[in-house]
Design a protein around this nucleic acid. Structure first.
Lengths: 195, 195
DNA sequence: ACCTGAACACCGTTCAAGT
DNA sequence: ACCTGAACACCGTTCAAGT
């Protein structure tokens, strides 16, 4: 049976979920698909490009915006929340997407930056600065979530010492929202500023 | 002659500067030092720990604060600027420090977070939230600078197409400062908020 | 067009054995 | 205490040759 891009990306995602990014190798993926490693290079130029396709698969739900027009603050808060949820839905999701974004291999991540940039423009940020405001938000979501996710894995291994010391300051979602709020406040203060 | 931790870290930094993070391997480092690869494992538990030591070496200048007491805004702006400068001083510096920070292997990076957290407290942010505000700033500096640095390397290879279209919107330092200002404004708006 | 098999040039880490 | 040598168990990528 012929190998298709979609099958490869699906198998790679399964490997990621089950064993993590460290065990997501071209050779192992090929073994899982019962093809030779070289076969993958007919469909993808290199590993980076394949990981980019996995990143885009993970990020699929993020760009589905509410069709009802919403104020810019809610659009930013919503996009951040959907992005974090998507990353947390896969083992090492934040790390993989971070790497693909940094390598310029994720089209979906570029779309997320556009979404946030448009919201920044609506907030009154000068168009030249809007993309940078958007990237600032993205760096936060990726950084926060990668940290959160790596702690989760560490806790899962190291077990249950000191569970829920303070439900308020220890709830990751509340902590996440605090940072998003800080960024929204920063964007509000930045309206119509020039470099 | 005996091998010391300091020699290893210095040689690793030289390798980083000359060939980049992709070519900074334990085996190559050992070859450069004219020891066997196994020798490195007497001094460092693993590669992550060694990279953490390199990160801390790179970050050495960042924590030297101005002895004259300064308002919290200037402390944040100054720390961000010194952090970016330190990262840009070494090939793939931002990528290496990012990875070490994410892996919890950089003591210097923890010190930077403390510095920024103290500034946030001075700004009026509730102590519980100050570290998160500090991390938000750190995620930005690491994300922005990694992006800036990877573009620099791409430009250096791909050569000089479209040089300096607009000196104002294209100056990386000005763009960097815009994001820092956004974060400072966000912290200002956040004073005394509670989760 | 699509894939195999074998090769090239590497990795990180461990550990008995040496000095 | 500190290091070597060899081994273990892998990597990503290329490419002539097959179907």
């Amino acid at each position: 049976m012929q190998l298709h891009k979609r099958d490869v990306v699906e198998a790679a995602t399964a490997l990621l979920d089950d064993y993590g990014i460290a065990d997501l190798s071209m050779r192992r993926l090929a073994r899982e698909l019962e093809v030779s490693a070289g076969a993958l290079y007919w469909h993808f130029a290199n590993k980076q490009q394949l990981l980019g396709a996995v990143a885009d698969r993970i990020l699929q739900p993020v760009c589905d915006e509410d069709p009802v027009p919403q104020p810019w603050r809610d659009r930013i808060v919503g996009t951040c929340s959907r992005l974090r949820d998507a990353l947390l839905s896969h083992t090492d999701g934040a790390e993989l997407v971070s790497a693909s974004f940094a390598a310029g291999q994720s089209e979906a991540m570029k779309a997320v930056v556009s979404l946030l940039g448009a919201a920044a423009v609506d907030a009154g940020v000068a168009p030249d600065n809007a993309e940078l405001a958007a990237r600032t938000v993205v760096y936060y979501v990726l950084g926060f979530t990668a940290d959160e996710q790596s702690r989760m894995q560490w806790d899962a291994a190291g077990a249950d010492l000191a569970v829920g010391q303070s439900v308020l300051t220890d709830d990751p979602t509340a902590r996440f929202d605090f940072g998003v709020q800080l960024l929204v406040d920063g964007i509000r203060a930045t309206r119509a500023q020039r470099v």
